[in-house]
């Protein structure tokens, strides 16, 4: 019985310290440097969309001139 109570108290202590700990953030990911890969991928996609919009814009400009 006493063993169980001790275990419960210990568990409660652990959980409360966990709750009061700093909110979990992706700091390790950042320190590993891998987040830059994600940034690069997103930047590539956005650059692609931008290039597509520019092409579309130029095409429309050409049509506007030829009409």
């Amino acid at each position: 019985m006493a063993k169980n109570t001790l275990a419960t108290v210990f568990l409660l202590l652990v959980t409360t310290t966990l709750v009061h700990a700093e909110p979990e953030m992706a700091d390790t990911m950042r320190s590993n440097g891998k987040i830059y890969v994600v940034v690069a991928v997103l930047a590539t996609i956005f650059a692609g969309i931008f290039a597509y919009l520019v092409m579309l814009d130029r095409k429309i400009s050409k049509i506007e001139k030829n009409k």
Binding site: R30, I35, Y36, V38, V39, L42, A43, F46, A47, F50
Partner: peptide, 13 residues
């Protein structure tokens, strides 16, 4: 496009 591109990089880092 520059402002939005900056947001993607700055927003993540």
């Amino acid at each position: 496009a520059v402002l939005t591109g900056y947001t993607i990089v700055g927003g993540l880092l």
